[in-house]
Amino acid sequence: MKLYVIACDKSGYPALMKGIETGEGTDSVLTVQKIPCLGLVKESLLLETLEKEYDGILLVGCPLDSCYNLDGSRFAERRVHRVNALLQEAGIEKKVFLAFVTAEKTGELQRVLMLARSAFNKEESPT
């Protein structure tokens, strides 16, 4: 499984770095892009990224209610939902995952990585 990770620099990126240090499940992470806020990620960027060799995209950012930019994570959540719906409608077995973390608590990141892995290990399309 090849993952493209987009992480916000407030919480997602630090959490990811910690994960990589400890090596927990991050071996499938191929590329990491750091951005100021998940709210900046547009659907077209997600889809264009999926045109490449990646199986999935993981967005890592602040929890909904403590987004540094207030609504960034909420926007991201909606867009991820929409893109996944489009992918599913088109019968494409690629998926976008979303993990809300804080710089200290990285457990959620591990959980979503596990989820992504099991989604791609299954033969049928991920739901």
């Binding site: 077209s44 889809l47 264009e48 999926l50 045109e51 088109a90 494409i92």
Partner: peptide, 14 residues
Amino acid sequence: EKEAKELASLLRIK
């Protein structure tokens, strides 16, 4: 434009 780009992307993935 946005929707056109998205659909084109989807088609390219396919």
